[in-house]
Write a protein that binds this DNA or RNA. Structure first.
Lengths: 213, 213
DNA sequence: CTATTGAGAGCGAACGTTCATTCTCAGAAT
DNA sequence: ATTCTGAGAATGAACGTTCGCTCTCAATAG
């Protein structure tokens, strides 16, 4: 009975977050009205406010919920047999496979964090976390000798995030953007940036140009 | 007197656009109220509406105004003695030298175009124009033998825009983002993507790593 | 040179709407 | 009987836009 009550509350909360996520991705954070979210969640405003104290709390809840999920995908790279293959998998997962809803939502959170300090702090926490994971991933690959030793790891991590953001935005802003077509070029560039200079361009092409899919 | 009148009207319009640009960059398109823009322009709402029929018209005006300016910077690359130096200059101009106001404004237009069809059409026109210019620039470089002949020019142009968007967003979203530090890595990657495979990595480093600034 | 006039420039209060949030109250569960 | 859950109308602030008014000033008439 304790269990059931808390369980129910938690379920209700995730239902609401799901509905809000769809609305935000579809209409944007400001454009999506509480009424719209309530309708999507099949619930009255008064009731929704019993679960979340404000509209901001909805975004915060969504961001928080996605943090763990995002973080998990980095672990895979470290345990992949070949670093660049692992990275390619990560890239595909983040740049191509993600649903339009997720991409749109990400865009929405980014632009909201430009002016909403509350969201900005939350978002920057997550970004910082992700950047650290990328940097750690790169350092591990350096130790393993898969990546050039003289790399500016911090800057390289930033570059990878730049690529991620750029791809994400093009996807959400350019209709008919073909991530699939661009990905090989991206991977090639990244390989060039990270790989030891001894690795030949031919090797680069064979590893990045094809190799997955 | 004909001249003066039209001149005055035009001046007023650019003044208003300047003010609106500052407001939008600072507060965002939706957050910036007409009152705020009026205050910034030193003008009453009623009067401002004599020059622009709506808030949307302000964004449209700003976008339109920046199109030519943006386009002009591409001509420089074509006339540069070395393609990659020209490209590096363009990159520096777009990724590092741009003012925070411009970057913020760009972010604002992008996110607004995600949900405002009117703005979306305008923005996509401009983006399309820019992409064509980049592609043309690349094709010219291919003809000159400065860039590898087997390049997927369309995809490469998209990649360059991805990089531009990514850098722009990181600048406007990550406090303390150091574009200067990241730029060499970006240029190196781009060189790797575009240059003929005959060009050695050493050549790449000397051309991209330093060379300007 | 002065007076008249009329259109453009400008103001700021007011309007109508939208929206997040709160209030009130009724039914269900315990 | 009391607490939990829910609905939906009410509230009040904020916003884009409009409206009616005043002021400025150059052109013309006297």
């Amino acid at each position: 009975m304790y269990r059931t009550k808390e369980q129910r509350q938690s379920d209700r909360r995730t239902e609401i977050l799901d509905a809000a996520q769809r609305c935000f991705a579809r209409s944007g954070f400001h454009q999506a009205s509480m009424q719209e979210i309530c309708a999507e969640a099949g619930m009255s405003p008064g009731n929704l406010y019993r679960y979340f104290p404000s509209k901001e709390a909805l975004i915060a809840g969504i961001s928080e919920r996605n943090r763990a999920e995002a973080a998990a995908s980095f672990a895979k790279v470290d345990s992949a047999p070949d670093f660049f293959e692992g990275l390619a998998g990560l890239a595909r997962h983040h740049l191509v496979d993600r649903s339009d809803v997720e991409v749109g939502l990400c865009a929405e959170i980014m632009s909201e964090s430009r002016r909403n300090p509350e969201i900005a702090r939350l978002y920057q926490d997550i970004e910082h976390d992700i950047k650290n994971r990328i940097a750690a991933m790169l350092r591990l690959a350096v130790e393993r000798g898969e990546v050039r030793a003289d790399l500016d790891v911090e800057a390289a991590a930033t570059v990878l995030m730049v690529l991620g953001d750029g791809m994400s935005w093009r996807r959400s802003v350019e209709p008919g953007f073909d991530a699939e077509r661009v990905l090989p070029l991206i991977l090639k560039m990244v390989h060039c940036l990270l790989a030891k200079s001894a690795d030949s361009p031919a090797d680069c092409a064979s590893r990045c140009g094809e190799g997955e899919r």
